[in-house]
Simulated scan of single mutants.
Amino acid sequence: MTRDVRVAVFRPDDERMAEAVKLLDSLGATPVPDPMLAVEPTGAVPDGADDTPDPDIVVLTSKTGVELLADAGWSPGEATLVCIGPRTAAAARDAGWTVDIVPEEYTSSGLVETLADEVDGRRVEVARSDHGSDVLLDGLRDAGADVHETVLYRLVRPEGSGQSTVMAAGGELDAVCFTSSLTVANFLDAADERGVREEAVAGLNRAVVGVIGDPTRETAEGYGIRVDVVPENATFEELATEVVETAAPTYHE
């Protein structure tokens, strides 16, 4: 089988990228890994300071956040533990914690919908990256929660990233998988650095563009990028599978 469906993926350069490459390969596509995110831990944890009551509910929004908290020796204690999706929940269980709630929709709005009737008058700790959506904090506050946020890590663009932008500009990509609004913004910043932003956007609009959910779709479209695929469930496996199928129907085995 000739591999001519080139799919760029922008996950951090850790096991997530390795898994993405393996999945795309298994789908019969040629992966183009170009990490657009790197994790910089802040060292912060929900500290339970003497003047701050322990939270009633803790919300974790990523596997990375779980791992940083576990490495720091933190635990949710008696709080109700909420994880944004199955990957985050699995990491929490691996850390020895009991996961109480996982929303049906693995997004900030899904979390708000799931928790809206549970949080009035309760203290909610949200522990996540510096690029978390305001939808979560605002939605919980509107539902009556006393919300506190701890920034566990910053997401930055790795030095040297962006070769995929040149490929997009040259028409050498058949598809891309954006897994967050930040990967879209960092892709375009990398294209700016190389002086190919306009050409890269045009190249994306000739390819198949897949995004992980509606917030990422809105970001991409706001930059003039046409979105072709938004999977029903916000998982990379579903995103990649639909992108490859759209780029080359019945191509993969």
Rank of each mutant, 00 (worst) to 15 (best):
M1T: 15
A8H: 03
D13Y: 07
R16F: 06
A18V: 12
L27P: 13
G28K: 11
V32H: 01
M36D: 05
P41Y: 12
A44C: 12
A44V: 08
A44K: 12
G48H: 13
D50R: 10
L60K: 10
A70Y: 04
D71I: 12
S75I: 09
L81W: 09
L81A: 02
T98H: 11
D100F: 01
T107L: 00
S109H: 10
S109L: 10
G110Q: 04
E113K: 08
E113I: 05
T114Y: 01
E118N: 02
D120I: 08
R123G: 07
V124M: 03
D130S: 14
D134M: 10
D134V: 12
G144T: 00
A145G: 04
E149Y: 02
Y153D: 03
V156E: 04
R157M: 14
E159I: 11
G162V: 13
S164Y: 06
L173S: 07
V176D: 12
C177V: 09
C177G: 14
S180L: 09
S180R: 05
S180F: 06
F187G: 07
A190F: 09
A191W: 09
A191G: 11
R194I: 11
E198A: 08
N205D: 15
N205A: 05
A207N: 04
G213A: 13
P215C: 02
E221M: 05
Y223A: 15
V227R: 05
V230L: 03
A234N: 13
L239H: 07
T241D: 11
